[in-house]
Design a protein around this nucleic acid. Structure first.
Length: 563
RNA sequence: CGGAGUGUAGCGCAGUCUGGUUAGCGCACCUGGUUUGGGACCAGGGGGUCGAAGGUUCGAAUCCUUUCACUCCGACCA
């Protein structure tokens, strides 16, 4: 490819709203351009990267014996109504009607469509397992798209769906996919962690996310400093803290505690550590057809993890409650205790069997001292947010919190969708069973940005070998210099002849201009054909280190071949 | 969805408060010339329904109303 004919409009200035390196450099380098909120065009260079990533994903998927398909981007609403997600999915699902007033959605994911494709055609266990995938455009009408390609509304995703006769076989595929995804990210040159995740609205058991480590990640992930444990903050567990069995120097009972409404004030008032107090968090749980108040009790020094809380009460949403609502329900804010009547309560599992605690007495200005959860009939569950330096529940190591960008998510779905869509096969006993399913996603267009988030410097992009649009740029310092031009042309022809993906910068620009573009665009290396040529010398520049190495013009071809 | 902003040339912005020449600047672009190892210089040039609609006015980028788009903070986010 000749740079003089390449459509790669580079700019010196970044768009004003670009904050992240990936956003800035991808736009400045002419890889992508925004056309609408959360919608991006891929220009030739961006498309090359996208295709490279697609190819890696496809090759690894095919190697794992999944088969590629391509489903309609536009899906009839009927299917979504059948699975029940038409209403559940919310406003992110873009719905519209055609000229005949038939309803459709733009596919944000394709469980329904894929199950529909398979259900009428796979009727026997002999046809299982089956894993079908596609690399296709998705649309999610995000409330607030941002960060360039990282959080677009329209994006390219590889989504795969596997069908099995039982959960053992699903598990085998799940492990296989974790391995496959790892191979994909390794090839792309990304540093990542596989973390345990919340399964969210999609349902199902066992779910893991593949997180690429990057400072600008949107997700907090918890990693152990001494074992393999890693989890999304939404799902992370910790070992229970050692209980400080301090004896409260007062007898049990209700104490007058005027205006003591916070945990801090409470521990000061009684001169105890906050680990001896019980915190009550009230939320309104929103369900499809109803709503109710729910109270979560956790240890005073902990924070509620809302995702855990939400999935525990199976609500669509948890929202904060204002003081007025509490009053109407007869709940006294600041003095809420577990012995409250007529409200759904959940208690963190770390409080199970704890004794000698201080909690609200459910009346204004009173707290109960010496409260015990022993033998109490509550629903105990994991409710707390893991914090930095907590103890790992697997090995006793120290947990650290770091930032990650979710690039893949794999689920053991089970039969949620096959049941809902009445998709069954005949098992070995001739009995109809719903398929046991897995679903696996990987954000292909997001990966374009993720590579840059992890690989860039203050000058521009640093594409990894498998993602770079070109392996090499030949920079002709002065295109009007006949000797330079001739030599560069012949080297270009030679390298192309052996199949190297090489770009010849033959533009009539000055040296500095072309170097800046090289640095911005981030191809792994460049050969400079310049004033050294009269001495028979050219230079190789490494993009990462920016080191220049002088090489004889007669040896340059071989040198490039050796690497 | 709540809060806050911004829309003027391809990009980045000034002008709007206080209405009044031909709407301006930098980058980019075109022509000619000089330059050619770190985003060159000189000269000339092209490019605008001032987001849209309506209103006020002798006169609107500027004031008023409506509307659309985009962005930021937050909530949300398989």
């Amino acid at each position: 490819m000749r740079f003089s004919t390449l459509f790669a409009p580079t700019t010196k200035e970044a768009p004003k709203d670009a904050i992240l390196p990936s956003h800035i450099y991808l736009v400045r380098g002419g890889f992508v351009s925004q056309i609408g909120s959360g919608i991006y065009n891929f220009l030739p260079l961006g498309k090359m990267v996208l295709d490279k990533i697609k190819t890696v994903v496809k090759e690894e998927m095919d190697k794992s014996s999944a088969q590629e398909t391509q489903l309609g981007f536009v899906t009839p609403s009927e299917l979504w109504k059948e699975s029940g997600r038409y209403h559940k999915f919310g406003k992110e699902l873009l719905r519209f009607t055609d000229r005949k007033e038939n309803e459709f959605v733009l596919g944000p994911t394709h469980e329904e469509a894929m199950v529909d494709l398979v259900r009428s055609r796979v009727k026997s266990y002999k046809q299982l397992p089956l894993h079908l995938y596609q690399i296709n455009t998705k649309f999610r009408d995000e409330a607030r798209p941002r960060y360039g390609l990282l959080r677009g509304r329209e994006f390219l995703m590889k989504d795969g769906y596997s069908f099995h006769e039982d959960s053992q076989d699903l598990e085998r595929e799940f492990i296989q996919m974790e391995k496959t995804y790892g191979q994909i990210l390794d090839r792309l040159g990304l540093e990542y962690r596989v973390v345990e995740a919340d399964s969210g609205a999609i349902g199902g058991s066992g779910s893991k996310e593949l997180m690429v480590l990057a400072d600008n990640g949107e997700d907090d992930i918890v990693v152990c400093d001494s074992c393999d444990y890693a989890a999304n903050i939404e799902a992370a567990k910790r070992a229970g803290k050692p209980i400080d069995t301090q004896n409260l120097e007062m007898s049990a009972g209700d104490f007058h505690t005027p205006d003591v409404t916070t945990i801090d004030a409470l521990s000061v008032f009684f001169k105890v550590d906050s680990t001896s107090t019980v915190k009550a968090v009230v939320k309104k749980a929103i369900y499809e057809e109803s709503e109710e108040l729910v109270i979560f009790f956790i240890c005073g020094d902990s924070e509620l993890q809302e995702t855990k809380a939400q999935s525990l009460c199976q609500a669509i949403e948890l929202v904060d409650v204002d003081a007025e609502t509490l009053k109407q329900k007869g709940i006294v804010a600041g003095f809420i205790g577990p012995e409250i009547k007529d409200v759904t309560c959940f208690v963190d599992v770390e409080l199970k069997d704890r004794e000698n605690l201080i909690c609200g007495a459910n009346k204004v200005d009173y707290h109960t001292v010496g409260y015990s959860f022993k033998d109490k009939d509550f629903t105990f569950a994991d409710l707390i947010t893991v914090e930095e330096d907590d103890t790992c529940s697997c090995c006793g190591g120290i947990l650290k919190i770091t930032k990650g960008i979710e690039v893949g998510h794999i689920f053991q779905l089970g039969d949620t969708y096959s049941k809902a869509l009445n998709a069954t096969f005949l098992d070995r006993n001739g009995k109809a069973q719903p398929y046991v399913m897995g679903t696996y996603g990987i954000g292909v267009s997001r990966l374009v940005a993720v590579v840059i988030e992890q690989h860039h410097d203050e000058k521009g992009c640093l594409w990894t070998p498998e993602t770079s649009p070109f392996a090499l740029t030949i920079i002709v310092s002065n295109i009007k210099d006949e000797a330079q031009r001739t030599f560069a042309e012949s080297l270009y022809a030679q390298l192309k002849a052996v199949g190297m993906n090489v770009l010849l910068d033959d533009r009539g620009e000055r040296f500095g201009f072309k170097m800046k573009d090289f640095e911005l665009l981030g191809f792994p290396k460049a050969v400079i054909v310049g004033k050294g040529l009269v001495e028979g010398e050219v230079q190789i520049v490494d993009r990462k280190t920016l080191e220049k190495q002088t090489v004889s013009k007669d040896e340059i071809f071989q040198k490039l071949m050796d690497k």
